[in-house]
Design a protein around this nucleic acid. Structure first.
Lengths: 213, 213
DNA sequence: CCCAAAATCCCTACAAGTGGGTATTGTGGC
DNA sequence: GCCACAATACCCACTTGTAGGGATTTTGGG
Protein backbone atom coordinates (compact mmCIF):
# COMPACT_ATOMS: atom_id res chain seq x y z
CA UNK A 1 0.00 0.00 0.00
CA UNK A 2 1.52 3.28 -1.08
CA UNK A 3 1.85 6.22 1.27
CA UNK A 4 -1.24 8.36 1.61
CA UNK A 5 -0.31 11.96 0.84
CA UNK A 6 -2.45 14.32 2.87
CA UNK A 7 -3.16 18.01 2.52
CA UNK A 8 -4.59 19.63 5.63
CA UNK A 9 -7.00 22.47 4.96
CA UNK A 10 -7.42 24.32 8.24
CA UNK A 11 -7.23 27.92 9.37
CA UNK A 12 -4.53 26.96 11.84
CA UNK A 13 -1.28 25.41 10.76
CA UNK A 14 -1.01 24.10 14.32
CA UNK A 15 -3.64 21.51 13.40
CA UNK A 16 -1.52 20.32 10.49
CA UNK A 17 1.46 20.07 12.82
CA UNK A 18 -0.65 18.12 15.28
CA UNK A 19 -1.41 15.64 12.56
CA UNK A 20 2.25 15.48 11.59
CA UNK A 21 3.04 14.66 15.21
CA UNK A 22 0.48 11.87 15.25
CA UNK A 23 1.72 10.38 11.99
CA UNK A 24 5.46 10.42 12.76
CA UNK A 25 5.51 6.66 13.30
CA UNK A 26 3.27 5.86 10.33
CA UNK A 27 5.19 5.43 7.10
CA UNK A 28 1.93 4.83 5.23
CA UNK A 29 0.57 8.34 5.82
CA UNK A 30 2.14 11.73 5.44
CA UNK A 31 1.10 15.35 5.64
CA UNK A 32 2.55 16.86 2.49
CA UNK A 33 1.06 20.33 2.73
CA UNK A 34 -1.09 22.73 4.68
CA UNK A 35 -3.59 25.26 3.35
CA UNK A 36 -5.23 27.85 5.55
CA UNK A 37 -7.93 28.80 3.07
CA UNK A 38 -9.84 27.42 0.13
CA UNK A 39 -7.78 29.38 -2.35
CA UNK A 40 -4.53 28.14 -0.89
CA UNK A 41 -5.83 24.59 -1.01
CA UNK A 42 -6.24 24.71 -4.77
CA UNK A 43 -2.82 26.29 -5.13
CA UNK A 44 -1.29 23.36 -3.25
CA UNK A 45 -3.25 20.85 -5.29
CA UNK A 46 -1.94 22.43 -8.44
CA UNK A 47 1.66 22.19 -7.30
CA UNK A 48 1.84 18.53 -6.45
CA UNK A 49 -0.04 15.34 -6.11
CA UNK A 50 -2.12 14.40 -3.11
CA UNK A 51 -4.48 11.58 -2.23
CA UNK A 52 -6.55 13.06 0.56
CA UNK A 53 -7.68 16.43 1.83
CA UNK A 54 -8.46 16.71 5.51
CA UNK A 55 -10.95 19.52 5.27
CA UNK A 56 -12.18 21.76 8.04
CA UNK A 57 -15.74 23.03 7.58
CA UNK A 58 -14.93 26.44 9.03
CA UNK A 59 -12.45 28.01 6.66
CA UNK A 60 -12.02 31.74 6.14
CA UNK A 61 -13.00 33.04 2.72
CA UNK A 62 -14.27 29.92 1.01
CA UNK A 63 -15.59 27.47 3.57
CA UNK A 64 -15.15 23.72 3.57
CA UNK A 65 -18.53 23.00 2.02
CA UNK A 66 -17.84 25.17 -1.00
CA UNK A 67 -14.28 23.93 -1.23
CA UNK A 68 -15.48 20.31 -1.28
CA UNK A 69 -17.92 21.11 -4.07
CA UNK A 70 -15.23 22.63 -6.24
CA UNK A 71 -12.70 19.97 -5.36
CA UNK A 72 -14.98 17.23 -6.59
CA UNK A 73 -15.11 18.85 -10.00
CA UNK A 74 -11.49 19.89 -10.38
CA UNK A 75 -9.80 16.93 -8.73
CA UNK A 76 -12.26 14.03 -8.60
CA UNK A 77 -9.51 11.55 -7.74
CA UNK A 78 -8.67 13.32 -4.47
CA UNK A 79 -10.67 12.07 -1.51
CA UNK A 80 -12.10 14.39 1.10
CA UNK A 81 -12.33 13.71 4.81
CA UNK A 82 -14.24 16.41 6.66
CA UNK A 83 -12.61 17.44 9.93
CA UNK A 84 -14.45 19.81 12.20
CA UNK A 85 -15.50 20.58 15.74
CA UNK A 86 -19.05 21.19 14.54
CA UNK A 87 -21.50 18.39 15.25
CA UNK A 88 -24.64 19.90 13.75
CA UNK A 89 -26.24 17.44 11.38
CA UNK A 90 -26.66 20.31 8.96
CA UNK A 91 -22.93 20.49 8.33
CA UNK A 92 -22.36 16.75 8.24
CA UNK A 93 -25.07 16.48 5.63
CA UNK A 94 -23.71 19.32 3.55
CA UNK A 95 -20.19 17.94 3.51
CA UNK A 96 -21.30 14.44 2.56
CA UNK A 97 -23.52 15.77 -0.20
CA UNK A 98 -20.67 17.86 -1.54
CA UNK A 99 -18.46 14.85 -1.86
CA UNK A 100 -16.76 14.18 1.47
CA UNK A 101 -16.36 10.45 2.07
CA UNK A 102 -16.20 10.82 5.84
CA UNK A 103 -16.58 13.28 8.70
CA UNK A 104 -14.31 13.01 11.72
CA UNK A 105 -14.61 15.28 14.74
CA UNK A 106 -11.69 17.42 15.81
CA UNK A 107 -11.49 15.96 19.28
CA UNK A 108 -11.02 12.47 17.88
CA UNK A 109 -8.17 10.39 19.24
CA UNK A 110 -5.11 9.49 17.24
CA UNK A 111 -6.41 5.97 16.69
CA UNK A 112 -9.76 7.18 15.45
CA UNK A 113 -8.19 9.67 13.08
CA UNK A 114 -6.00 7.00 11.55
CA UNK A 115 -8.92 4.63 11.20
CA UNK A 116 -10.94 7.34 9.52
CA UNK A 117 -8.17 8.01 7.02
CA UNK A 118 -7.82 4.32 6.24
CA UNK A 119 -11.55 3.82 5.76
CA UNK A 120 -11.87 6.83 3.52
CA UNK A 121 -8.94 5.81 1.37
CA UNK A 122 -10.69 2.50 0.83
CA UNK A 123 -13.64 4.52 -0.39
CA UNK A 124 -15.78 3.66 2.61
CA UNK A 125 -17.76 6.19 4.58
CA UNK A 126 -16.46 7.05 8.03
CA UNK A 127 -18.42 9.06 10.60
CA UNK A 128 -17.36 9.80 14.17
CA UNK A 129 -19.45 7.93 16.68
CA UNK A 130 -21.52 10.88 18.00
CA UNK A 131 -22.56 11.75 14.46
CA UNK A 132 -23.45 8.20 13.51
CA UNK A 133 -25.61 7.97 16.61
CA UNK A 134 -27.39 11.20 15.83
CA UNK A 135 -28.22 10.03 12.35
CA UNK A 136 -29.24 6.54 13.41
CA UNK A 137 -31.41 7.44 16.35
CA UNK A 138 -34.12 9.99 16.30
CA UNK A 139 -32.76 12.54 13.94
CA UNK A 140 -35.83 14.15 12.50
CA UNK A 141 -36.04 16.73 9.82
CA UNK A 142 -38.86 19.16 10.21
CA UNK A 143 -41.69 19.49 7.79
CA UNK A 144 -40.10 22.58 6.35
CA UNK A 145 -37.10 20.72 5.05
CA UNK A 146 -38.19 17.19 4.30
CA UNK A 147 -35.75 14.43 3.43
CA UNK A 148 -32.92 16.62 4.64
CA UNK A 149 -32.44 18.04 1.20
CA UNK A 150 -29.40 20.21 1.02
CA UNK A 151 -30.38 23.70 0.17
CA UNK A 152 -27.59 25.97 -0.90
CA UNK A 153 -27.73 29.67 -0.28
CA UNK A 154 -27.36 32.16 -3.08
CA UNK A 155 -24.62 34.77 -3.09
CA UNK A 156 -27.10 37.47 -2.20
CA UNK A 157 -28.44 35.47 0.71
CA UNK A 158 -24.92 35.02 2.02
CA UNK A 159 -24.30 38.74 1.91
CA UNK A 160 -27.49 39.33 3.84
CA UNK A 161 -26.87 36.71 6.51
CA UNK A 162 -23.37 38.05 6.97
CA UNK A 163 -24.63 41.56 7.60
CA UNK A 164 -27.28 40.26 9.97
CA UNK A 165 -24.57 38.54 12.01
CA UNK A 166 -22.71 41.85 12.07
CA UNK A 167 -25.60 43.37 14.02
CA UNK A 168 -27.00 45.35 11.12
CA UNK A 169 -30.72 46.05 10.99
CA UNK A 170 -32.77 45.36 7.88
CA UNK A 171 -32.72 49.02 7.04
CA UNK A 172 -28.95 49.29 7.29
CA UNK A 173 -28.54 46.20 5.15
CA UNK A 174 -30.93 47.62 2.58
CA UNK A 175 -28.89 50.82 2.42
CA UNK A 176 -25.65 48.90 2.08
CA UNK A 177 -26.97 46.78 -0.79
CA UNK A 178 -28.98 49.62 -2.35
CA UNK A 179 -32.29 47.81 -2.20
CA UNK A 180 -35.54 48.19 -0.32
CA UNK A 181 -35.85 47.00 3.29
CA UNK A 182 -38.71 44.85 2.05
CA UNK A 183 -36.27 42.87 -0.05
CA UNK A 184 -34.14 42.19 2.97
CA UNK A 185 -37.20 40.97 4.82
CA UNK A 186 -37.87 38.54 2.01
CA UNK A 187 -34.31 37.29 2.06
CA UNK A 188 -34.60 36.85 5.81
CA UNK A 189 -37.73 34.77 5.41
CA UNK A 190 -36.11 32.60 2.77
CA UNK A 191 -32.97 32.16 4.86
CA UNK A 192 -34.93 31.11 7.92
CA UNK A 193 -36.89 28.59 5.91
CA UNK A 194 -33.83 27.20 4.15
CA UNK A 195 -31.77 26.90 7.31
CA UNK A 196 -34.73 25.82 9.36
CA UNK A 197 -34.21 28.24 12.22
CA UNK A 198 -36.70 30.22 14.27
CA UNK A 199 -35.01 33.54 14.80
CA UNK A 200 -32.09 35.84 14.16
CA UNK A 201 -30.09 33.83 16.67
CA UNK A 202 -30.11 30.78 14.42
CA UNK A 203 -28.99 32.79 11.42
CA UNK A 204 -26.13 34.30 13.39
CA UNK A 205 -24.91 30.93 14.58
CA UNK A 206 -24.93 29.58 11.04
CA UNK A 207 -22.89 32.52 9.79
CA UNK A 208 -20.43 32.22 12.66
CA UNK A 209 -19.97 28.48 12.19
CA UNK A 210 -19.19 28.92 8.52
CA UNK A 211 -16.77 31.77 9.16
CA UNK A 212 -18.83 34.26 7.22
CA UNK A 213 -18.50 37.04 9.74
CA UNK B 1 17.50 28.05 32.19
CA UNK B 2 15.31 25.14 33.28
CA UNK B 3 12.81 23.51 30.97
CA UNK B 4 9.45 25.26 30.73
CA UNK B 5 6.74 22.76 31.56
CA UNK B 6 3.61 23.57 29.61
CA UNK B 7 0.02 22.47 30.03
CA UNK B 8 -2.16 23.03 26.98
CA UNK B 9 -5.79 23.82 27.77
CA UNK B 10 -7.70 23.38 24.53
CA UNK B 11 -10.83 21.55 23.45
CA UNK B 12 -8.78 19.65 20.90
CA UNK B 13 -5.85 17.48 21.85
CA UNK B 14 -4.67 17.91 18.27
CA UNK B 15 -3.59 21.42 19.22
CA UNK B 16 -1.47 20.05 22.06
CA UNK B 17 0.08 17.57 19.65
CA UNK B 18 0.75 20.40 17.21
CA UNK B 19 2.68 22.17 19.92
CA UNK B 20 4.55 18.99 20.78
CA UNK B 21 5.54 18.72 17.15
CA UNK B 22 6.79 22.29 17.11
CA UNK B 23 8.80 21.85 20.31
CA UNK B 24 10.47 18.54 19.46
CA UNK B 25 13.80 20.24 18.86
CA UNK B 26 13.54 22.57 21.86
CA UNK B 27 14.91 21.02 25.04
CA UNK B 28 13.96 24.15 27.00
CA UNK B 29 10.22 23.74 26.48
CA UNK B 30 7.97 20.75 26.88
CA UNK B 31 4.27 19.98 26.76
CA UNK B 32 3.69 17.92 29.90
CA UNK B 33 -0.08 17.65 29.76
CA UNK B 34 -3.26 18.47 27.89
CA UNK B 35 -6.61 19.46 29.33
CA UNK B 36 -9.73 19.74 27.22
CA UNK B 37 -11.77 21.66 29.79
CA UNK B 38 -11.37 23.96 32.77
CA UNK B 39 -12.07 21.18 35.21
CA UNK B 40 -9.50 18.89 33.64
CA UNK B 41 -6.97 21.70 33.75
CA UNK B 42 -7.16 21.95 37.51
CA UNK B 43 -6.95 18.19 37.81
CA UNK B 44 -3.70 18.23 35.84
CA UNK B 45 -2.34 21.11 37.89
CA UNK B 46 -3.04 19.15 41.05
CA UNK B 47 -1.19 16.12 39.80
CA UNK B 48 2.12 17.66 38.87
CA UNK B 49 4.05 20.84 38.53
CA UNK B 50 3.82 23.16 35.58
CA UNK B 51 5.22 26.56 34.71
CA UNK B 52 2.88 27.75 32.00
CA UNK B 53 -0.68 27.18 30.82
CA UNK B 54 -1.37 27.80 27.16
CA UNK B 55 -5.02 28.70 27.51
CA UNK B 56 -7.66 28.78 24.80
CA UNK B 57 -10.42 31.33 25.37
CA UNK B 58 -13.11 29.04 23.98
CA UNK B 59 -13.27 26.06 26.31
CA UNK B 60 -16.35 23.93 26.88
CA UNK B 61 -17.87 24.15 30.33
CA UNK B 62 -15.67 26.68 32.04
CA UNK B 63 -14.19 29.05 29.48
CA UNK B 64 -10.66 30.42 29.41
CA UNK B 65 -11.56 33.72 31.02
CA UNK B 66 -13.08 32.05 34.06
CA UNK B 67 -10.31 29.47 34.17
CA UNK B 68 -7.67 32.22 34.19
CA UNK B 69 -9.42 33.98 37.06
CA UNK B 70 -9.47 30.84 39.19
CA UNK B 71 -5.95 29.87 38.18
CA UNK B 72 -4.55 33.15 39.43
CA UNK B 73 -5.96 32.45 42.88
CA UNK B 74 -5.19 28.76 43.18
CA UNK B 75 -1.83 28.68 41.42
CA UNK B 76 -0.41 32.21 41.30
CA UNK B 77 3.05 30.96 40.34
CA UNK B 78 1.77 29.42 37.08
CA UNK B 79 1.87 31.82 34.18
CA UNK B 80 -0.93 32.05 31.63
CA UNK B 81 -0.50 32.63 27.92
CA UNK B 82 -3.84 33.08 26.15
CA UNK B 83 -4.06 31.19 22.86
CA UNK B 84 -7.08 31.75 20.69
CA UNK B 85 -8.36 32.37 17.19
CA UNK B 86 -10.54 35.22 18.49
CA UNK B 87 -9.21 38.69 17.80
CA UNK B 88 -11.98 40.75 19.40
CA UNK B 89 -10.47 43.25 21.76
CA UNK B 90 -13.14 42.26 24.24
CA UNK B 91 -11.56 38.86 24.79
CA UNK B 92 -7.98 40.10 24.80
CA UNK B 93 -8.92 42.60 27.46
CA UNK B 94 -10.75 40.05 29.55
CA UNK B 95 -7.89 37.58 29.48
CA UNK B 96 -5.28 40.17 30.39
CA UNK B 97 -7.41 41.49 33.24
CA UNK B 98 -7.92 37.97 34.53
CA UNK B 99 -4.22 37.40 34.76
CA UNK B 100 -2.91 36.26 31.38
CA UNK B 101 0.56 37.65 30.70
CA UNK B 102 0.21 37.39 26.94
CA UNK B 103 -2.21 36.63 24.12
CA UNK B 104 -1.01 34.80 21.04
CA UNK B 105 -3.23 34.03 18.08
CA UNK B 106 -3.77 30.49 16.95
CA UNK B 107 -2.48 31.05 13.47
CA UNK B 108 0.86 32.23 14.81
CA UNK B 109 4.00 30.70 13.34
CA UNK B 110 6.28 28.38 15.22
CA UNK B 111 8.79 31.17 15.76
CA UNK B 112 6.18 33.53 17.12
CA UNK B 113 4.77 30.94 19.47
CA UNK B 114 8.21 30.26 20.89
CA UNK B 115 8.95 33.92 21.29
CA UNK B 116 5.64 34.42 23.08
CA UNK B 117 6.41 31.62 25.51
CA UNK B 118 9.86 33.03 26.23
CA UNK B 119 8.57 36.54 26.79
CA UNK B 120 5.80 35.39 29.07
CA UNK B 121 8.15 33.23 31.13
CA UNK B 122 10.26 36.34 31.67
CA UNK B 123 7.14 37.99 32.99
CA UNK B 124 6.81 40.31 30.04
CA UNK B 125 3.61 40.91 28.16
CA UNK B 126 3.36 39.41 24.69
CA UNK B 127 0.61 40.24 22.22
CA UNK B 128 0.38 39.01 18.63
CA UNK B 129 0.96 41.78 16.15
CA UNK B 130 -2.63 42.26 14.92
CA UNK B 131 -3.81 42.71 18.50
CA UNK B 132 -1.06 45.13 19.42
CA UNK B 133 -1.94 47.20 16.37
CA UNK B 134 -5.61 47.26 17.24
CA UNK B 135 -4.88 48.47 20.73
CA UNK B 136 -2.32 51.05 19.64
CA UNK B 137 -4.21 52.58 16.78
CA UNK B 138 -7.74 53.76 16.92
CA UNK B 139 -9.29 51.32 19.30
CA UNK B 140 -12.07 53.28 20.93
CA UNK B 141 -14.28 52.18 23.77
CA UNK B 142 -17.78 53.54 23.61
CA UNK B 143 -19.20 55.86 26.19
CA UNK B 144 -21.21 53.01 27.60
CA UNK B 145 -18.16 51.14 28.74
CA UNK B 146 -15.48 53.72 29.43
CA UNK B 147 -11.88 52.74 30.09
CA UNK B 148 -12.62 49.29 28.76
CA UNK B 149 -13.50 48.09 32.22
CA UNK B 150 -14.07 44.39 32.30
CA UNK B 151 -17.62 43.67 33.28
CA UNK B 152 -18.31 40.13 34.33
CA UNK B 153 -21.68 38.58 33.77
CA UNK B 154 -23.64 37.03 36.59
CA UNK B 155 -24.68 33.41 36.54
CA UNK B 156 -28.24 34.37 35.79
CA UNK B 157 -27.18 36.54 32.89
CA UNK B 158 -25.19 33.66 31.46
CA UNK B 159 -28.19 31.38 31.59
CA UNK B 160 -30.24 33.99 29.77
CA UNK B 161 -27.70 34.69 27.04
CA UNK B 162 -27.27 30.98 26.50
CA UNK B 163 -30.98 30.48 25.98
CA UNK B 164 -31.11 33.48 23.67
CA UNK B 165 -28.39 31.91 21.53
CA UNK B 166 -30.45 28.72 21.46
CA UNK B 167 -33.20 30.62 19.63
CA UNK B 168 -35.53 30.87 22.61
CA UNK B 169 -37.89 33.82 22.83
CA UNK B 170 -38.15 35.95 25.96
CA UNK B 171 -41.34 34.17 26.90
CA UNK B 172 -39.83 30.71 26.55
CA UNK B 173 -36.84 31.75 28.62
CA UNK B 174 -39.15 33.19 31.26
CA UNK B 175 -41.03 29.91 31.44
CA UNK B 176 -37.84 27.90 31.66
CA UNK B 177 -36.49 30.00 34.51
CA UNK B 178 -39.88 30.47 36.20
CA UNK B 179 -39.80 34.24 36.10
CA UNK B 180 -41.70 36.98 34.31
CA UNK B 181 -40.89 37.83 30.67
CA UNK B 182 -40.28 41.34 31.93
CA UNK B 183 -37.36 40.06 33.95
CA UNK B 184 -35.83 38.53 30.86
CA UNK B 185 -36.19 41.84 29.10
CA UNK B 186 -34.29 43.49 31.92
CA UNK B 187 -31.53 40.90 31.72
CA UNK B 188 -31.37 41.45 27.98
CA UNK B 189 -30.95 45.18 28.44
CA UNK B 190 -28.23 44.70 31.02
CA UNK B 191 -26.45 42.18 28.82
CA UNK B 192 -26.49 44.45 25.82
CA UNK B 193 -25.13 47.34 27.85
CA UNK B 194 -22.43 45.24 29.49
CA UNK B 195 -21.30 43.62 26.26
CA UNK B 196 -21.75 46.78 24.27
CA UNK B 197 -23.75 45.25 21.44
CA UNK B 198 -26.72 46.55 19.50
CA UNK B 199 -28.90 43.53 19.01
CA UNK B 200 -29.55 39.86 19.56
CA UNK B 201 -26.92 39.09 16.96
CA UNK B 202 -24.18 40.51 19.16
CA UNK B 203 -25.34 38.50 22.15
CA UNK B 204 -25.40 35.31 20.13
CA UNK B 205 -21.88 35.84 18.84
CA UNK B 206 -20.60 36.42 22.36
CA UNK B 207 -22.21 33.21 23.59
CA UNK B 208 -20.88 31.22 20.64
CA UNK B 209 -17.35 32.57 21.03
CA UNK B 210 -17.27 31.61 24.68
CA UNK B 211 -18.68 28.14 24.03
CA UNK B 212 -21.78 28.77 26.07
CA UNK B 213 -24.15 27.21 23.59
C1' DC C 1 -38.28 31.00 -27.09
C1' DC C 2 -39.60 29.28 -22.74
C1' DC C 3 -38.84 27.81 -18.19
C1' DA C 4 -36.91 27.96 -13.56
C1' DA C 5 -34.68 30.30 -10.32
C1' DA C 6 -33.12 34.45 -8.31
C1' DA C 7 -33.84 38.94 -6.92
C1' DT C 8 -36.69 42.51 -6.29
C1' DC C 9 -40.84 44.89 -4.09
C1' DC C 10 -45.38 45.50 -1.65
C1' DC C 11 -49.35 44.45 1.74
C1' DT C 12 -51.44 43.29 6.30
C1' DA C 13 -51.15 41.68 10.89
C1' DC C 14 -49.06 40.35 14.83
C1' DA C 15 -45.11 39.06 17.77
C1' DA C 16 -40.90 40.34 19.67
C1' DG C 17 -37.16 43.18 20.91
C1' DT C 18 -35.14 47.93 22.22
C1' DG C 19 -34.51 51.88 25.35
C1' DG C 20 -35.84 54.81 28.76
C1' DG C 21 -37.66 54.86 33.44
C1' DT C 22 -38.62 53.06 38.51
C1' DA C 23 -38.90 49.87 42.34
C1' DT C 24 -38.69 45.92 45.62
C1' DT C 25 -36.43 42.04 47.78
C1' DG C 26 -32.58 39.46 49.41
C1' DT C 27 -27.69 38.63 50.01
C1' DG C 28 -23.01 39.35 51.33
C1' DG C 29 -19.31 42.31 52.75
C1' DC C 30 -17.52 46.07 55.49
C1' DG D 1 -26.52 48.85 60.26
C1' DC D 2 -25.33 50.28 55.79
C1' DC D 3 -23.95 49.79 51.13
C1' DA D 4 -23.56 47.56 46.78
C1' DC D 5 -25.34 44.47 43.83
C1' DA D 6 -27.99 40.75 41.95
C1' DA D 7 -32.45 39.34 40.78
C1' DT D 8 -36.90 40.30 40.33
C1' DA D 9 -40.86 43.00 38.16
C1' DC D 10 -43.41 46.71 36.03
C1' DC D 11 -44.40 51.03 33.04
C1' DC D 12 -44.46 53.42 28.49
C1' DA D 13 -43.12 54.30 23.78
C1' DC D 14 -41.06 52.90 19.87
C1' DT D 15 -38.61 50.01 16.54
C1' DT D 16 -37.76 45.76 14.55
C1' DG D 17 -38.59 41.22 13.20
C1' DT D 18 -41.88 37.29 11.99
C1' DA D 19 -45.40 35.17 9.01
C1' DG D 20 -48.56 34.89 5.55
C1' DG D 21 -49.95 36.37 1.13
C1' DG D 22 -48.91 38.06 -3.83
C1' DA D 23 -46.26 40.26 -7.54
C1' DT D 24 -42.67 41.77 -11.03
C1' DT D 25 -38.24 41.75 -13.44
C1' DT D 26 -33.93 39.70 -14.60
C1' DT D 27 -30.95 35.96 -15.66
C1' DG D 28 -29.20 31.77 -17.51
C1' DG D 29 -29.91 27.26 -19.52
C1' DG D 30 -32.16 24.00 -22.39
Amino acid sequence: MPTVRIIVADAQELVADGLRYRLTDRPDMQVVAHACSGKELFDRLGEGEADLVLMDVSLPGMDGIDAARILRKKHPQVKVLAHSALTDIEYVNSMLIEGAVGYVLKNASKAELIEAIQQVMLGERYLSEPLQSTIDSGYKFTEKRPEGAYIGLTEREREVIRLIALEKTNEEIADALHVSPETIKTHRKNLMTKLNVRSTAGLVRYAVDRCWI
